[in-house]
Structures are given as structure tokens and as C-alpha cells.
Design a protein around this nucleic acid. Structure first.
Lengths: 249, 249
DNA sequence: AATTCGCTCGCACACTGTTCGAGAATCGTC
DNA sequence: GACGATTCTCGAACAGTGTGCGAGCGAATT
């Protein structure tokens, strides 16, 4: 095995081409996102993408080295959809970024899939994480703790949203309603509950709940996010001065 | 579009076959995990898997409906590798599950990939979440908060570990050392840092750090996990009685 | 002995990502 | 204008994919 190098779209530089006519990288990426949104991950193929752009499939390979690069670019596009807040309060900044990222992932469920296989090194991803780090540094975290706290927030946000997005998009692409899925899943859960009465109680409560599933998930996300931020604020040298603003709910 | 149903390995029942000879589902799943561990996600094909079992590719389709079902089964196998702790302290139980799951994911990096595309509904996944829920209920959480808290812990654990596993396995499969990757990435980060001095400082600190990368990541994971658990314990009716045991570090 | 069942598997189909090399279109320079 | 260089497009082809179909096999049941 020869001495390999680590490559990514972001490690090669890219001249933005000379003329307006014909294909361009931005145009291709935009079409990629559209196609992914419309038909999902497994429907994306170079031939289909080419056809959508009125071009041959292999023409794309001039602008992009391979499909993975295309996915890296598309992923960063999603990070770019996160609106970066402007506020003094670190809690406001971090929770805005978290909710914004969540919204972006839910709007582009294939994101999860890409994130699981490719590293997120694009400028927009950097931007998100830089925003978090800046806010956390201002809040009073020191050195490595800044990274750790930022990573914790991003990790929770992605980990909480990704499976949710995967699930809802799997339903949508197969044309199944959420009620239908819950009905189909019931026997399997019933089976699992035989060994774990704890789960059965949870499931019963979920079925009988009057809260609709979407609100339910937002509550769940909020619960975890607030808990994480509370836990982080305990790590600040003086946490008393900031710890009140989440209690107003 | 006809009225579809939601299907999964776990929604069909499965007779465990009659004789010992020939293929069996367990055997196939075991071979799948082995192949995935050895050669990674994109190397898994039905033909290769069949060959490894000394069978034709299409023979597998008798025991498993399709490749996705196989991946669901393999994923649950990873959840099954998590050792379920036995303790009174909810903090001990939850953090043991979190660290166990983290270890399992790091040992089987393809897990991330599957989780991003398929729902985790298997018995072992249920078992993990039931363990968490039971501990949290014993700790004093009520009703929905039990789910929320359990989901928060799982979300953080998966969200923190998944990209890490994806990254390290991408390096390994391409035969790249971590130092080499950091060297290759440097210019891209440098470029990104131009706009965000915050990131540049973080990166400098990481490069100059004397802590080795693996320990660094464990520290980061621990930081977020402890923060999350601290935040959760604030939500307990009486948090005073439990809040001391993390201060011992 | 005949029949049914559980299981294996070769063939075939429609499709995939990507390489290669021939060609077209456009540019900078004379 | 003309000519060479550069930038870009794309058809053909290759090796490989998941999986439906239906012919066949051995063993258990009738």
C-alpha cells in the first residue's frame, strides 16, 4: 500500500471557471440538493443528475472529482442553511444554532446519511462550529473546554435529530403515514415489551398521549438541549449570573 | 400509490429453520458483521458475502428479504455488544451504557452508516433503551421525562461517537495515519481560519497539544456526557442527594 | 412411492460509478 | 481574421451492484 494522502473537496483548490454558460459547480450542487430532497438518497445517480441538468452524466466529472465530493458539497450546503444568530447571551446563540441545525436536517433528511460516511469539513460547517466556539469562549470557557462544549452541543443536536429525520423520511418516501407505521410497529414493540415492562409502559403512554408526534419530538429535543446547556453552565467559573434565563421558559 | 405498510425485519416473524445443515440466519448475520468489520461498508455485497459462506449469493435471499434487513440485523448485533450494567446508581448505569455503546460503535464503524439510513428497532436496541429508562425511572423522573432523558443520553452518545468512528475508519480503510491526515487537512483549516480566528486558535492548540488524539477524544466525550448527566440531574425533584458523586471526578 | 416442503443457486435484468479518449467550443495571441 | 492552447462535453465501455424468477435438489411427510 503506497503512502496515501487524505483527500476531500476541501483539500483541493478549485478555480470557479471562466464563463457563465454551461455547467458550473454551484449549479450542480444546487441540482444535487434538489434531487436529494425530492427523491431521497438512493435515487441520486450521476446519470439522473446529468439528465436533470440537460447534460451527459460524465460531464459532471469535470467539475467534481467523484460522487463523494458532490455529497460533501451538498452536506455543506445544508450547514449553510443554518442562520447564524447575533446575540450576546451564549445560551441564546448556542440554542439558536442547535434549533437551526435541527431544522436544516429535518428539511434535508439525506444529510444524516452523508454525515455518517463523510467528514464535515466545509466552510459552512466550520462556520457553525466557529459561532458556537466564539459564544462559548465569551461565556467564559477556557482552552480545550471551548472545543469540548461546542462538540457536545453539536453532537447532541445531530444525534437527536438524525434518527428522527431518517425515520420520517423513510416513511415519506414509502408513502406511509405515521399512524400506519405506529400500527405496523405495534406487534414488534409488543413482542419486545414482553421482556421489558418498562418499554411497554412508555409505549402505552405514547399511544394514549394527546400531544401530536411532532410537538412531542420538539419537546423531547428541547428537554435534552436545555439539560445539556444547564450541565455546561455548571462548568463555568461563575454560573450563577447566567443560570436564570432558562427558568423563564 | 397503494396503501403501503411499514416493513422491517422486526415486523415479520421468523421461523428459525429446521435443520443444522446449510445456512442459517444467525450464521449469515455473523458473517456480515465480520465482513463489515474487515472491509467496511462499501465492500459488503451479497456476492462477496455468499462466497465467504461458501454459498451462492442468491441463497441468502431465502433467509433474509433483502440487504437492508441484513443491515438491520447487523446493527442490532452491535447494540447487543453493549454490556448492560447492574447498579443502583442511575448515573453509573447511564454512563456505563453510554461508554459501552461508544465502545461498540468504535469497534464497528459501519454502524453509523446503517443507523443513518435504517431505524433501530431490534431487541438489543430496545434493551439498551429499556435499561436507561428503568434507571431513570428509579432515579425519580416522571412519565414523558423518562423517555426524554433516555433519548437525550442516547442521542448525545451516538451523535458524539458516530462522526468520530466514521472519520477514523475512513482513515484506516485508506491506509492513512492520523498525523498524515492532520497534515493534509492543515491547508484547508488554515483557509477556513482566515474568516474565523476562533477556529485557528482551537486548531493551533490541538496541534501543539501533548495529549494524544485518542485520549483527547475520550476527554471530550466525557466532558459532554458528564455535562448532560449534570443537566439531567437538575431536573430531578430533589437533585441535592445525588449531585455530589460527579464532583469526585 | 408419491408428493410436498425447505432450501440452493444460475441466469438475467436494469442499473450503478467511473475511466478514457475523441471531439467541440471558447480563449489568448499574433 | 487565423491558429494554437485551454476548457469543457459526452458516448462507449467496464466491472460491479441488488434482486426476481424459476429450475432443481435432498429430506421429511403422507
Amino acid at each position: 500500500m503506497p503512502e496515501q494522502r487524505f483527500t476531500s473537496v476541501w483539500t483541493r483548490e478549485h478555480k470557479p471557471r471562466r464563463a457563465q454558460q454551461g455547467l458550473s459547480r454551484e449549479q450542480i450542487v444546487r441540482a444535487t440538493v434538489e434531487l436529494l430532497d425530492a427523491e431521497g438518497m438512493e435515487a441520486l445517480s450521476m446519470r439522473k443528475l446529468g439528465a436533470r441538468l440537460g447534460a451527459g452524466a460524465t460531464s459532471l466529472y469535470w467539475h467534481v472529482a467523484n460522487k463523494n465530493e458532490l455529497l460533501e458539497l451538498a452536506m455543506d450546503e445544508v450547514f449553510g442553511a443554518v442562520r447564524i444568530p447575533d446575540s450576546e447571551s451564549w445560551r441564546e446563540v448556542t440554542s439558536n444554532v442547535a434549533w437551526g441545525l435541527r431544522a436544516a436536517i429535518m428539511a434535508h433528511p439525506w444529510f444524516t446519511f452523508v454525515l455518517g460516511s463523510l467528514p464535515a469539513l466545509g466552510p459552512n460547517a466550520m462556520n457553525c462550529s466557529a459561532t458556537l466556539c466564539a459564544a462559548l469562549a465569551r461565556a467564559g470557557f477556557q482552552k480545550h473546554d471551548i472545543d469540548y462544549a461546542g462538540a457536545a452541543i453539536l453532537s447532541y443536536t445531530i444525534g437527536a435529530t438524525a434518527p428522527e429525520a431518517a425515520y420520517t423520511s423513510a416513511l415519506k418516501s414509502r408513502g406511509i403515514t405515521m399512524e400506519q407505521a405506529q400500527r405496523d410497529l405495534a406487534p414488534a414493540v409488543e413482542e419486545a415489551a414482553r421482556a421489558h415492562p418498562e418499554i411497554h409502559a412508555r409505549f402505552q403512554e405514547a399511544v394514549e398521549s394527546t400531544i401530536d408526534p411532532i410537538a412531542h419530538r420538539q419537546l423531547s429535543f428541547d428537554f435534552g438541549l436545555v439539560s445539556m446547556l444547564d450541565g455546561l453552565s455548571m462548568r463555568l467559573p461563575r454560573s450563577a449570573d447566567m443560570s436564570a434565563d432558562h427558568l423563564t421558559k
